[in-house]
Amino acid sequence: MARLEGARSLSPGQCAVVLTVCAYIGLVLVLPIVALVSRAVAQGPAPLLAAAGDPAARGGLVLTLVLAAIAVLANGIAGVVGALVMVRQRFLARRVLDALVDMPLAVSPVMTGLAFLLVFGRGGWLEPALGLLHLKVTFAFPGLVLATLFVTFPFTLREVAYVLAELGTDEEQAAVTLGASAWQTFWLITLPNIRFGLGNGIVLTLARALGEFGAVLVIGGAISGKTQTATIFIYNAVEERQEPAAYAMALVLAFASIALLVVIEWLKRRRSAEN
């Protein structure tokens, strides 16, 4: 209620609350980003260029982008199909499944990496099968993919499920009575209607994939030029006291994150403009 009365009429108590919130956000969210950017900028463009010429840095960045692209594609499809099933179907294990979807959000990524090692690593459950197929998962690219898919799984599904539940089935039923097949209904009605939810999910998936560290570190082993992602590159650079390289890479990732934030805001606007 008090907020509706406008900014001018804040009581001293309300002022204190607003200031506290601002200070908190400043300390926790803004300050670290500002410090990172100013440090990276202060060292000038030289380290950035140097990093761009460094095959390890370039390799790490490309690896991260490839992993993010795979996560977006795979979890985008799985998310849409999964959301359709969870929202539209009524089956016995639905609630259990519903809780399972959120598990990657609750489990520490390092534990995720460990768990994957237990399944795919030396002496793991699936090791005999993998051996037959001559497939190496741990400390190799497939392991990184699995870990990334795991940690990014919930985002698209959750965002799309939320939109689907809001949407209801009236429009789809209307399409069906007009003679549309299930396939036509999906492409012409359902997909366009969930596009903002899907967009949001993709952006969150991208953000999470770009920033993932713990799981890929444990399952990938941080092998330079092979399983060293952008975040692991930063970590290793700090360890090896090559701070300029670390800040350069961090700056690249920070810009990517800011770009994603802008996309999220844009999606929000478009969505509210449509409704």
């Binding site: 009236d170 039923q173 209307a174 069906v176 009575t177 007009l178 003679g179 549309a180 097949s181």
Partner: peptide, 10 residues
Amino acid sequence: ASARGVGFVF
């Protein structure tokens, strides 16, 4: 429903 030739107004 798609083959019934029915117009439906919701």
